[in-house]
Amino acid sequence: MNLTLKIWRQKNTTSQGKMVEYKVNNISEDMSFLEMMDILNEELIVKGDDPIAFDHDCREGICGMCSLYINGEAHGPDRGITTCQLHMRKFKDGDTIYIEPWRAKAFPVIKDLVVDRTSFERIMASGGFISVNTSGNTQDANNIPIPKDDADEAFDAATCIGCGACVATCKNSSAMLFVSAKVSQLALLPQGKLERERRVLNMVDQMDKEGFGNCTNTGACEVECPKGISLSNIARMNREYLRASLVKKD
């Protein structure tokens, strides 16, 4: 199939970007979206042009690196997938495809379609961990009894790959789904209970400092999340935050 692509080009963080039009021909419907981007980049290199920078790593939907806002939707017109799992069969011959980077103040563009998501790292560093001795004498995990329902819910929350689609798709650029998945994953398990209050207060505080917007419960994040992280995690974080605010002593 032959396609027209409108792609965001931006030299660096400080420069002004713009949408640029490209044509690609003979694209197979069996290709993944990123392979189509590779073909375009090879053509650009042959022509001596600057190839389009975009994030990617595992190309099997587990790392969360590939981003891209495709035709007005995070990870394109399909559900429960990342961009590397999007196939060209979702498009028709002659289509025009808009390809843009994640848009959020907390995700500044580095170059073209690559955005800086280290704001997520700073949120994790503020409380998304448990403090345990890992010097070789850790307890066998199976020694701690955990109800199956809690383990399942914690696992579901832990499937978050931190891709940022929730922020990209939220009309407020809110990071609540991401942060709530990380808070839930640890709050549900006995190992995470020790730092329960500190964790949620610090992570929400860091989230606010990074310049993410506020959640207005539109539910768009849940729909676009490649891992199907549920809004119930945001409700849990709200409860955790309320509880922590009330019980903390300082």
């Binding site: 409108k6 949408m19 007005g72 939707e73 808009y98 959020a104 650029s173 207005t216 729909v223």
Partner: peptide, 22 residues
């Protein structure tokens, strides 16, 4: 919330994932 996204999308389809009222 408006300040959290200074650069808007050239093409956005919010109706595919959220309600008009929300």
């Amino acid at each position: 919330n408006a300040k959290a996204r200074p650069q808007k999308y050239a093409l956005d389809k919010p109706s595919t994932n959220s309600s008009f009222s929300s």
